[in-house]
């Protein structure tokens, strides 16, 4: 059966999910703390970098990209790169005009 591979796929344990969740909660707290700091650049970049790290955690563990087939991983990575590049181009155009 075609889904045989699906059942055989590596299963993530309940404990791993719980650990990732704890990490996400901690990172959320950290982002609020960083945003309250006086330091200018860190105040803006910090929460965004932390959000990106949280998104990677969700993608890798909750959405199983870590154990997903190569094709799906490539589709997602290429899609995300396209968004990042177009965002960076628009940002540089607006910020340094």
């Amino acid at each position: 059966m075609s889904e045989g591979g699906e059942e055989g796929r590596e299963r993530t344990g309940y404990a791993t999910y719980a650990l990732v969740w704890l990490g996400l909660m901690g990172l959320t707290w950290l982002s609020v703390t960083v945003a309250g700091l006086e330091a200018g650049a860190l105040k803006i970049a910090g929460p965004l970098v932390i959000a990106a790290i949280k998104a990677v955690f969700v993608l890798a563990f909750f959405m199983h990209l870590k154990t997903e087939r190569g094709l799906i991983r490539w589709v997602v990575v290429i899609g995300l790169i396209a968004f990042i590049v177009s965002g960076a181009l628009v940002f540089s155009d607006v910020a340094y005009r």
């Binding site: 982002s31 959000a51 969700v58």
Partner: peptide, 17 residues
Amino acid sequence: HLVDIIWIFLFPFFYLI
């Protein structure tokens, strides 16, 4: 999970930075 990821970004954009 995607709905969650979108909120992960909306939160810092609107509330924090």
